[in-house]
Design a protein around this nucleic acid. Structure first.
Lengths: 235, 235
DNA sequence: GTCATCCATACTGCATACAGTATGGAGCTG
DNA sequence: CAGCTCCATACTGTATGCAGTATGGATGAC
């Protein structure tokens, strides 16, 4: 069926996230796969804001039972992608301009701080890692690769910075915030990408130079630019 | 049964949170009640870090089926109170000193920012609201009321500041972070309370005076003091 | 024609049932 | 006696079943 095909393809994408080249790839739980699948459907506009996500239909679509769907929807609710109305079920969240501003504001706070920490903590391995991601992202952005890949690379760079910063609580919060921001930006990322990676270059240099203040400030401006772009598009 | 009694009493506590005096109090869903109950059991040490939370036993203890328990545990996992090991189930999270530092660090970032925003946005109503909370908290702290109440009042003050600040995304993140911080502090809150409310007084004054920089800095120091206390206790 | 009421429908929320798997210890082997 | 294998056990993950309820439209009253 097209149904199980759909879920299978999403699962592949989800697998990339936890890629650790473990000998036996532990299949993710159905609720994780469903979560990833539904999130992607939302981010790429297959499910419109306000749309009612009936558990039964989603379960049928993905070829699983209602149970994992239900749990996935609750998880997506915490992450801000769907709203759970008591007794009514799940609806695709309808982002407002205000909310987008707030997400970017918080993200700027946390990432700027993480970037400052990264500049203090980074070692040669970390710099090499950032260089590698930058090279890949810079190229992809100039080739105007597909949005999905650009989003993934962008996220990888930001996550690497935060990981080097070393605050795992921040890392966990930013994982969700970045996905939400990615949703808001999904439609415009292609145009944004080149200038974005130019800014990534400057951030990388500041981190490599252990200049904490500059690194933090650059990250702040970087995320502000994303937000500004969002405003322009009349989102 | 003692089982349902237990859940019922927890549900009463949870009800306080959403107290809005609506004509017909909509009973919270079982998973919400279970979540609140289990979180309280963890925060007040009835369930020790590392303990295995078998769905069946919890369900029996609370007089409900496994389903709402399962969903509550997943929710608690996101909030950092339990860890879900694949195939093994839920275990009470074991906080480390490092993690506590990280939580307080992020909390300080977000609350300091919110406090700055509050000082910019506050109106007379807001000031009156803070004054009322302060009066109640100041008194309770001097009377050495029970920890549960002190935690609740402390949380109310901080949440009020964040609400006045107006960033709802921050508000949602801080709700979880404050509960986690409350867990870490639960054992020492009684001693901490008096000096804490002295600092609340200063924060309130800065907010009322619309002094954004001062308000932000005071909140930063305030949360740092909580963290320092945590370090002292050898947590 | 407008409004209230009633009811059929569809879906959620919770409970139960079933299958698969991680684990710890008994028993066996070297 | 040490270490490995195998199996009984317990628990998770998923599926299904059932009762309660929110909703929207049809019907009737004014």
């Amino acid at each position: 069926m097209a149904a199980s095909d759909s879920l299978a393809s999403r699962a592949g994408t989800a697998g990339q996230l936890s890629r650790g080249d473990v000998p036996v790839m532990r299949r993710a739980s159905l609720r994780e796969q469903v979560r990833a699948a539904v999130e992607e459907l939302i981010v790429f506009g297959k499910l419109a804001p306000g749309e009612h996500l009936a558990e039964e239909s989603l379960a049928e679509l993905l070829g699983v039972s209602r149970q994992p769907v239900r749990e996935a929807l609750q998880s997506l609710s915490v992450a801000g992608f769907v709203d759970l109305r008591a007794g009514r079920g799940a609806f695709v969240h309808e982002p407002t301009a205000r909310e987008a501003r707030e997400v970017f504001h918080v993200r700027a706070l946390l990432e700027s701080d993480s970037c400052r920490l990264a500049a203090q903590n980074v070692d040669d391995d970390g710099v090499r890692r950032l260089e590698a991601i930058y090279a890949e992202g810079h190229e992809a952005s100039q080739n105007h690769d597909d949005p999905r890949r650009l989003i993934e690379l962008n996220r990888t760079f930001h996550r690497a910075i935060t990981e080097i910063g070393g605050n795992r609580v921040s890392l966990a919060l930013l994982a969700d915030l970045e996905r939400r921001a990615g949703w808001y930006l999904a439609t415009i990322i292609t145009n944004r990408a080149p200038s974005s990676w130019a800014e990534h270059r400057a951030i990388l240099d500041a981190v490599a130079a252990h200049d904490a203040d500059l690194a933090g400030e650059l990250m702040l401006n970087h995320i502000d630019h994303s937000r500004d772009l969002l405003e322009f598009t009349g989102q």
